[in-house]
Write a protein that binds this DNA or RNA. Structure first.
Length: 471
RNA sequence: GGCGGCGUGGCCAAGUGGUCUAAGGCGAAGGUCUGCAAAACCUUUAUUCGUCGGUUCGAAUCCGACCGCCGCCUCCA
């Protein structure tokens, strides 16, 4: 039974989809005005793992991630780069998709763009104006937070206290400072769309409401995003959507903890950030994912090169096992033994911890326990039946691969392997084996060293010599 | 000021009332295997969970106080 923490109710709840086995899930995607940073990457990877775990459990997940392609920051960037907002958005959208792919994040079912949904947003704003939840001041339309009596229910904030905080921008035209823009009047030279309130563009919050409702329904299952979106973004989404539809917007709200630099939030506005693509140049996507998954999704996590390096090191354990399996699958015969091994109990443990608020650190520890036991089983037996390796491979692919994404990427592997290369290596290993048998160690070592020079490492084992290519 | 979170071994990080003398990864030390390697495996590395009190038969886990750190309340994953 899967249960996880719901920000809306502030407790763990059993997950009951509206229309099982279908699950509707929305995650706030990027505003494409720059490359996204590692903090964003954490959110995207974690959402990816949750989505994949749901799929692993048999749910059919409709996973929607929006792309905000019109917004103040894009306009600003366009001015800086002396470019059009469309060019800026296009450039960084392309980069966004590349980075997602490089992080081994599964493609969403849909990536709706804000500019493709202006009509839907205008309609929702119209409804809000008609119902008296929103008001127009000179072509700017604001949501009246006082009219929506549950305002603050997600973030646990109270309107009056927020006002006394006095950090909210003073804007003469608003009824109260917390009111937020649904529609912004276009200034000179800014991109605009026609609307009943004149030329302008949508406010930031309305797009998620409009696109969520359109693609997932007025009420959907899961809405996820980073911690800092709880207020005001998600609070505002709830207010708008529920005021417009009279229905609950999303049933479960999941929020991810921050990635910090020296205990401080990594953010574009603080300038202490690394882009995901920078980090991908230094570390493998699997190591980055492992690093994220070794901490709980709701807590903060400090980011340093040292920590990434230790994740990269840990990942080698996984890779080494995969390499071993790959070798054995190639040559193991049908005659060896099949060691006793309880694959099911590992899978059950994995399910158990993931069902409990997606405890990925424990899930990872189970993978490592599994690897240790498997390595032991392999070491203890002289000749192992190929079926055993197939089972190991299936387990790893199913759990560590498909759900967590911390196994070595297969597509990369197959590209690098050529049959001819394999045969040549095997010929050399055969010669080396004979040399060893005749105690001609200088020749044996020479072969090994020469292979290392071209990026092939070999390991002598009870079942012959394994070899693998360095990545 | 309001709201929320956190403080566990050298580092990272699970665990939230008994199975905890506390998982897993990294690091360190020793060992097994090997012609030597590599990998793997084994052993050791927190009788202790920020501090001080309390509740309880029993607490890292609940309560209180204190110390320290961080986030949201403004665009932000």
């Amino acid at each position: 039974m899967l249960s996880f923490y719901n920000t809306l109710t502030k407790k763990n709840e059993e997950f009951k989809p509206i229309n099982s086995p279908n699950v509707s899930m929305y995650i706030c995607g990027p505003t494409v005005y720059d490359y996204f940073h590692v903090g964003n990457a954490r959110t995207f990877v974690l959402a990816d793992v949750i989505r994949k775990y749901l799929e692993y459990k048999g749910y059919n997940v409709k996973f929607v991630m929006n792309v905000t392609d019109i917004d103040d920051k894009i306009i600003k960037k366009a001015n800086e780069e002396k470019n059009s907002t469309i060019d800026v958005a296009t450039k960084y959208s392309i980069a966004f998709f590349e980075d997602l792919k490089n992080l081994r994040i599964k493609e969403a079912t849909l990536y709706p763009k804000a500019t493709d949904h202006i009509e839907d947003m205008i309609n929702m704003i119209k409804t809000l104006v008609d119902k008296g939840f929103a008001y127009n001041v000179n072509g700017n339309v604001f949501f009246d937070v006082k009219r929506y009596k549950f305002y603050g229910k997600l973030s646990g904030k109270n309107i009056d206290e927020l006002e006394s905080g006095a950090r909210v921008e003073i804007n003469e035209s608003k009824l109260q400072p917390l009111d937020f823009a649904l529609w912004k009047k276009a200034k000179e030279g800014e991109p605009f769309w026609d609307s009943p309130w004149g030329k302008g563009r949508p406010g930031w919050h309305i797009e998620c409401s409009a696109m969520g409702c359109k693609h997932l329904g007025e009420t959907f299952d899961i809405h996820a995003g980073g911690n800092d979106l709880i207020f005001p973004h998600h609070e505002n989404e709830i207010a708008q959507s529920e005021a417009a539809t009279n229905k609950p917007f999303a049933n479960y709200w999941i929020h991810f903890g921050f990635l910090n630099i020296n205990k401080e939030k990594m953010s574009k506005s603080l300038g202490n950030f690394f882009t995901a693509r920078e980090i991908l140049e230094k570390f493998s996507p699997e190591a980055i994912r492992l690093f994220f998954l070794q901490a709980h999704y709701r807590g903060p996590l400090d980011f340093t090169d040292e920590l990434l390096a230790s994740a990269e090191k840990g990942l080698e354990k996984i890779k080494n096992l995969q390499d071993t399996i790959k070798n054995r699958l190639k040559k193991s015969n049908q005659k060896g033994v099949i060691p006793e091994f309880d694959f099911d109990s590992f899978e059950q443990k994995f399910n158990g911890v993931m069902d409990d608020d997606f405890n990925t650190p424990q899930a990872v520890s189970i993978i490592f326990d599994f690897i240790r036991e498997i390595n032991k089983a392999i070491a203890e037996n002289n000749s192992i039946h190929i079926d055993f390796y197939k089972k190991i491979n299936n387990f790893m692919e199913k759990i560590a691969g498909s759900v967590l994404g911390i196994t070595k990427d297969k597509s990369l592997q197959t590209e690098r392997d050529s049959l001819l290369e394999d045969k040549l290596i095997e010929i050399l290993l055969d010669i080396r084996f004979k040399a060893k048998r005749e105690k001609n160690y200088p020749l044996a070592d020479e072969i090994r060293n020469k292979l290392v020079e071209v990026g092939i490492t070999i390991k002598d084992t009870k079942d012959g010599t394994d070899y693998f290519r360095d990545n």
